[in-house]
């Protein structure tokens, strides 16, 4: 049972008085994998480093299984961190990298050997103990970095963009492997990434962060389908965000209008490209096709509304559309935002 609780944690860096994390609260349940997702500078890495003990929170409290760890130094925390750059010790071979933490804990040599071999087997590197880390590929190095954390059996596993330095193919393979290992060991995990694919495919829950604050905490499917703020809507996946006005229950923008049962005033209409149907129209068109891209399995049509606002629509038959054609838009699912919060979803 390893539960991580973060309560009202803030971090203000003295240089420039930057508030990197602002009153952040989160509870990560036992065995859960939570992804901190956000753009650069959103405070996700700072938050992870605070959980790891490498940054001191300016205020707030952090507990693991009820034990306050807010001011505990990293070497005494029951956490294990995997760094973006692997951070392997190049003067040691793979075995020594993994055994170092166990030796510091005065584990018996036989037990060290057993545990190191077991964890190397777990990450698919059985027999690699005598290899020098410089002889390993990037993916193997990242597995060693993961094994180095896992061998100590931490209560909380912290992953700081562990796949950022790997190529796309390897990244996809490794994230599946890491997820498998995490589920097999049922280890509570906090994972930082700025890759939404990683977050959506791995996480039990996603925390979308912006300017050190939480924008939304939800299951990946909910974050994707029901973004709570225009920022989340724009950040996760591709989303058309059309700024317009609502009058008498009709949203309108540059010749395009659609019913929107909310009070009058400005609003942002959010429509996913896959939820926007197009029809070629010789008269009464609401937009004009700018470009058609055929991806084989589907097509993506770039449209321009009358005021040059760009909108994307996913179509199953891209060959039906040509640049310059007039089209009408028919959204199947919409959300509307005002003052940064959702006001309508249909």
């Amino acid at each position: 049972m390893s539960v991580l609780k973060i309560k009202d944690v803030s971090k203000i860096f003295p240089n420039g008085n930057v508030r990197a994390v602002d009153s952040f609260s989160l509870e990560v349940a036992d065995g859960e994998l939570v992804c901190l997702l956000g753009p650069s500078g959103s405070g996700k890495s700072t938050l992870l480093r605070m959980v790891g003990g490498f940054e001191r929170p300016t205020s707030g409290e952090m507990t693991i299984d009820g034990e306050d760890i807010t001011h505990v130094p990293p070497e005494k925390r029951p956490t294990g961190m995997v760094f973006q750059s692997h951070a392997l010790w190049t003067h040691m071979n793979v075995f020594k990298n993994l055994a170092f933490g166990l030796k510091l804990r005065k584990v018996a040599p036989d037990e060290i050997k057993r545990r190191v071999e077991a964890v190397l087997d777990l990450v698919g590197l059985a027999g690699y103990g005598t290899r020098h880390v410089a002889q390993l590929s990037g993916g193997q190095q990242q597995r060693v970095a993961l094994a180095r954390s896992l061998v100590l059996e931490p209560k909380i596993l912290l992953l700081d963009e562990p796949f950022a330095s790997l190529d796309q193919h390897l990244r996809e393979r490794l994230r599946e492997e890491v997820r498998d290992i995490q589920q097999r060991l049922k280890i509570t995990t906090l994972f930082v990434t700025h890759g939404q694919d990683e977050a959506l495919s791995m996480a039990d829950r996603i925390v979308v962060m912006r300017d050190g604050k939480t924008e939304q905490i939800d299951r990946p499917d909910v974050v994707y389908r029901e973004p709570q703020t225009p920022f989340v809507a724009g950040f996760i996946g591709t989303m058309n965000l059309i700024e317009g006005n609502v009058a008498n229950g009709i949203f309108s923008k540059a010749g395009y209008s659609t019913p929107l049962p909310v009070s009058d005033g400005p609003a942002i209409l959010a429509v996913r490209p896959e939820a926007l149907d197009l029809a070629v129209a010789s008269e009464g068109s609401q937009g004009k096709v700018h470009r058609v891209t055929d991806y084989g399995t589907h097509g993506l049509v770039d449209l321009e509304l009358n005021d040059a606002t760009r909108v994307k629509a996913m179509v199953s038959h891209p060959d039906l559309f040509r640049a310059g054609q007039g089209v009408t838009l028919a959204p199947r699912a919409i959300a509307a935002y005002r003052d940064g919060v959702v006001i309508h979803r249909a």
Binding site: F54, P74, E75, M81
Partner: peptide, 13 residues
Amino acid sequence: SNQAIEAARDVGA
């Protein structure tokens, strides 16, 4: 590197 140092602290050094 700072990360090599932090990784060592992380494992208990």
